[in-house]
Computed example of a mutant assay.
Amino acid sequence: MTTLITLEIRRALRNKKFMFFSVLYPPVLYLVIAGGADRRPIPGTELDMGLYYMVAMAAFGAMTAVLLGNSERIAKERESGWVRQLRLTALPGRGYVTAKIAAAATVSLPSIVLVLIVGATVKGVRLEAWQWAAIAAGTWLGSFVFAALGVAIGYLATGDAVRPISMLVYFVLSFAGGLWMPLTFLPDWVQNIAEWIPTHAYAALGTAVEAGGAPHLKDVGILAGYLLLFAGCAAWLYRKDTRKA
């Protein structure tokens, strides 16, 4: 399984388009969105625009890497016969799914780190050392949830359908979870729904640390629940795909 993880990481790093959208695009988007309103306070929170969008774009970049990268790659591998070849090896099904999730989450690290560096050097964000470390760790660990979702979509959709399906899921989760704008700017009914969406809980890990506290147990529990759900769906779809092969 370690060999497969290493192979997946190398393949992702060689994909220039993937590296641009997952690593370079989020910090550029952070600079554009935050703009000159860095110190404008966000109603209902203890954060300003610069702080909020630093965490939001770090989460957005990590989700881009793990969700889109996993889903499209797996769908193409199924059609090319690569997954069928792997089944002939000693690698168990759970090993394949675990390798995909771990490799995708590892590749998300550059995006997270780069957004935090831009926040500190360009946008003038100032935090304690423990806060920087906690935001990076929380954002990385939280990305496993969306890596598992990417695996599930990759087994659910065909090669032709995987891109529109994954993009739809990607944009809906990003908007409804508050990655593009603070939820306090949206109607109450949207905020009530967003509280149970994984992207909201994901970004909330970092914003809680920025405010000087620890991530809320509710957000951690929501992410853990979605991780079990998505990983379970991915494993079930893998076994179903095996029976078809």
Rank of each mutant, 00 (worst) to 15 (best):
V122R: 02
V125Y: 03
W132C: 12
R126I: 01
I135D: 02
S111R: 00
I117K: 01
A157M: 15
L109C: 13
Y155F: 15
G138S: 13
G138I: 01
G150S: 06
V125H: 02
F146I: 09
G150E: 00
G124K: 11
W132F: 14
P110K: 04
A134E: 05
A133H: 05
T139L: 04
P110T: 09
A120I: 03
Q131N: 04
A147S: 15
A136W: 05
I112E: 00
A148K: 10
A129D: 10
L109T: 14
L116W: 05
A157T: 00
V115S: 14
W130V: 12
A134N: 03
G142F: 07
I117D: 01
F144T: 14
Q131P: 08
S143Y: 02
A137N: 02
R126S: 06
V151M: 08
A133G: 05
A148E: 07
A129E: 10
F146L: 12
T158C: 08
V151Q: 10
Y155S: 06
V113Q: 04
L116A: 14
T121A: 15
T139A: 13
T139P: 05
W140H: 13
G150Q: 02
A147P: 10
A157Y: 00
A129N: 07
A148Q: 06
A157N: 03
T121Q: 09
S143N: 06
G150F: 04
V151D: 12
A147E: 05
A136P: 06
Q131T: 02
S111L: 02
I112A: 02
A152S: 12
V125A: 12
V122L: 14
A147C: 09
L116T: 10
A133K: 05
L149C: 13
A157S: 15
P110Y: 03
V118R: 08
V145L: 04
